[in-house]
Simulated assay, not measured.
Amino acid sequence: MKRKIVLLGSTGSIGTQTLDVVRNYRQELKVTALAANRNVELLEAQIREFGPSKACMFDEAAAAALRQRVSDLDVTVYSGMDGILELVRDEEADTVLTAVVGMIGIRPTIEAIKAGKDIALANKETLVCAGHIIMPLAREMGVSILPVDSEHSAIFQSLNGEPVSKIEKILLTASGGPFRTKTYEQLQEVTVDDALKNPNWDMGAKVTIDSASLVNKGLEVIEAKWLFGVDVDDIKVVVQPQSILHSAVQFVDGAVMGQMGVPDMKLPIQYALFYPDRLPMSEKRLDLAAMASLTFEEPRTDVFKGLPLAYRAAHEGGSMPTVFNAANEMAVKKFLKRQIRFLDIYDMISSAMDHHRIVADPTVEDILEAEKETYEFLESRG
């Protein structure tokens, strides 16, 4: 029986790689709906190739343009958040893969869970900001949350049915990014072009900058806390520059189970879509004998302050992870526009967190309000 997928964020890095997986398994996978922000040309091409019955563009003008371009096809084009919510309720689909970037992923994920859909999760903000809502709701509705991030997929695979009570520590790996060996003084001079050169992974601009600052790893720590039901202090970040060990679990008896492989996002995507089955992949294989070395380092939290700020946000809880995430989003946008320096990202996050008054158990409305207030505060600083 075919697995039927709604793909949110189909024109981004994760979305396009998901469609690569679908191309390889057309007999087993069917795309029923596609959603993107404003890349009309690419979404049109995807619609023509994969034949979904529904599509959505978040941008209203882009949706109007898309409707005109696919008027010869049997596809309904929606727009905005209401359109995305319509897609995730699609009765034909059984799985929603959320590959959108940002807070936009929260409401569709909640709606999809309420509609009984399994979630293949590639949107960090969903659990970082609303994990206290998402995970209990998923348990109540009896749906699966399957991680698509390579690190969380590796942890999920390493657990392999072991109970959470047997976990001593989660070992969350990081490549260290392009600035891994740079000093604080050297980081004052790095450029946007420097930061966009991730040594191992093919990612979008936002995630690549987050990887360079280690904010991405901080977001993954908070996400792992919710996904696996562990205390944040039981999650240890380890730098693994070759990106071969994608993460591991240390159990109470001292055994360490990890998942290794070449850096390729299609593996965790395919694993999430076919879980609990494993299907062949034609991608490059890991050759252990050919590897010169496999090295590990402590993260340099005195320099890369995104990680300790994330732990602070996780400890303070409530609406603080939302502020951490929102402040970083605004800072990265400014950095990509060359309006601030790389190290200013940390200053913007820290000042927003210092300013915020925590809401202990935020609703979705509280989360969105905290995001809005964070943006307004940072804009007021100039």
Rank of each mutant, 00 (worst) to 15 (best):
I134V: 15
H152Q: 11
L7F: 00
G258Y: 04
V77M: 09
L42D: 10
R26S: 14
A224I: 12
P52W: 00
A112H: 00
A289R: 12
P163R: 02
M103W: 04
F50I: 03
F342Y: 14
I84Y: 02
T126A: 01
I106H: 03
L267H: 12
N160T: 04
N24K: 05
D74W: 06
S380I: 11
I155L: 11
I222S: 13
D366M: 10
L294W: 06
L29R: 06
Y375A: 09
T98C: 11
S282K: 14
L97W: 04
M260H: 07
A224P: 01
K30Q: 12
K266V: 09
M57P: 09
S144C: 03
L127C: 05
E111C: 01
I235K: 04
I358K: 07
V262S: 10
Q250L: 10
G131M: 02
E283N: 14
S153C: 15
I222A: 10
E168L: 09
E49Y: 10
D90E: 14
T322V: 10
L34K: 01
D20M: 09
E86D: 13
Q242W: 01
Q188P: 04
E125K: 09
T126V: 15
V31K: 01
M353E: 00
S13E: 10
D82C: 03
T11Y: 06
F274T: 13
A370Y: 02
K206D: 09
S282P: 14
M330L: 14
T32C: 15
G80I: 04
D302R: 03
E220R: 01
K114N: 02
M141G: 10
Q270R: 07
G261I: 07
N328K: 13
L378S: 05
R48W: 05
D118E: 05
M103R: 08
I244P: 00
L214W: 12
D347A: 13
Q186C: 08
T32R: 15
S247R: 00
Y311V: 00
M348Q: 11
L279P: 00
E185R: 14
I110C: 10
I113Q: 08
A154G: 10
F251M: 03
T18C: 13
Y275P: 11
D118N: 11
P136H: 02
